[in-house]
C-alpha cells in the first residue's frame, strides 16, 4: 500500500467511527413537558428533519397536548403517527397542529413520521 492509501484508509475508518458515534451512540437531550393551569401538559415540537425535542418527559395518566409545527417543505414529516396511542395527524407546513394524548401507563411511546424515518418519544413517568 502506498502512503496515500494508508492515510485515506485511516481517514475512512475514522469517518465510519464518526457515523457510528454521531447517529447511533449519541443520545438526545430530554425535554420536560410544561404543565399548564388545568393540569394539562404541553409541549411544542418542531418538525424539521426530525423532531425537536425528540425526547419528551411527561407524567403518566395526565393529558398531554403536543403542538407539532412542520417547518420544512419536505413531505417526509407531513404526518405524525403515535402508534402506541393510536394517533395520526396531518401537519400542514408552518401551521401548528395539536395532538392530544393521555399515556395511561408509564413507559415510552414512540412518535414517528408516516414513513418511520423521523423518530421521537414520549417518556411517561
Amino acid at each position: 500500500m502506498t502512503t496515500t492509501q494508508v492515510v485515506v484508509t485511516i481517514v475512512g475508518l475514522c469517518v465510519v467511527a464518526g457515523i457510528v458515534w454521531y447517529f447511533w451512540l449519541w443520545t438526545p437531550g430530554q425535554a420536560v413537558a410544561r404543565t399548564a393551569a388545568g393540569g394539562v401538559q404541553e409541549v411544542e415540537v418542531t418538525v424539521r428533519g426530525g423532531y425537536e425535542p425528540a425526547s419528551i418527559v411527561v407524567e403518566a395518566g395526565k393529558p398531554v397536548v403536543l403542538r407539532f409545527t412542520r417547518r420544512e417543505p419536505s413531505t417526509c414529516g407531513e404526518e405524525v403517527v403515535i402508534p402506541g396511542l393510536g394517533k395520526r395527524a396531518y401537519l400542514p407546513e408552518n401551521q401548528p397542529v395539536t395532538v392530544e394524548v393521555t399515556p395511561e401507563r408509564p413507559g415510552e411511546y414512540e412518535f414517528t413520521c408516516g414513513m418511520n424515518m423521523y423518530r421521537g418519544k414520549l417518556i411517561a413517568r
Binding site: 428533519g49 417543505p73 424515518m117 423521523y118
Partner: peptide
C-alpha cells in the same frame, strides 16, 4: 434543494434519511 435541506435538518437532529 430539498434533499440538501432535508439532509441538513436531519443531521442537526442526529438523524439520517433518504435525503
Amino acid at each position: 434543494g430539498h434533499f440538501f435541506a432535508g439532509a441538513r435538518n436531519a443531521l442537526r437532529n442526529h438523524n439520517a434519511n433518504m435525503d
